[in-house]
Computed example of a mutant assay.
Amino acid sequence: MMLEDLYRLLRSSHVQAQGVVDTMTQPVVVLDHNLGVTTANNAFIKTFKVDRDDILGQDFFSLGDGQWDIAELRHLISAVVPRAAAVIGFEVEHDFPAIGQRTFLVDARRLSHPDDNSKNILVLFDDVTDRQRESAEMEFIVSETRHRMKNLFSVVRSIAMRTDTKNRTALDYRDTFLGRLEASFRAQEIAATNDAADLQVLLKQSIGEPDINRLYCDGPAVEISSSKVLPVSMIFHELMTNALKYGAFSVPDGEVHVRWTLEPGTGQRTYLRCEWREANGPPVGPPERKGYGSELIKATSAQAGGTVELNYDPFGLVATIEIPM
Rank of each mutant, 00 (worst) to 15 (best):
G66M: 04
G306K: 02
A183H: 06
A187G: 10
F236W: 12
A43Y: 08
A302K: 03
I141C: 01
E72K: 10
K166M: 09
R289F: 15
T193V: 02
D313Q: 07
E288W: 08
Y246R: 08
H237C: 06
S294A: 13
R273N: 05
I297N: 08
A279D: 09
T261P: 00
L239M: 11
F249Y: 12
K298P: 00
F125D: 13
Y312P: 04
L202N: 09
K166V: 07
D195N: 07
T129E: 01
D115C: 14
P252N: 10
G305I: 04
T103C: 12
G285C: 07
E144I: 01
D65P: 07
N194Y: 03
K245I: 00
T145R: 04
M149F: 02
I77W: 05
G254L: 08
E322W: 06
N34W: 08
L244W: 08
V308C: 14
S158I: 02
T25N: 13
F48V: 14
Y292I: 05
N280M: 13
Q16M: 11
D253F: 13
H14G: 08
R131S: 04
P324R: 03
A221I: 13
P210D: 04
N151F: 02
D59H: 14
D126C: 07
N242F: 10
P114Y: 13
F153W: 01
T320V: 15
G265S: 04
N242K: 01
A86E: 11
S184Y: 03
L296V: 03
V106E: 09
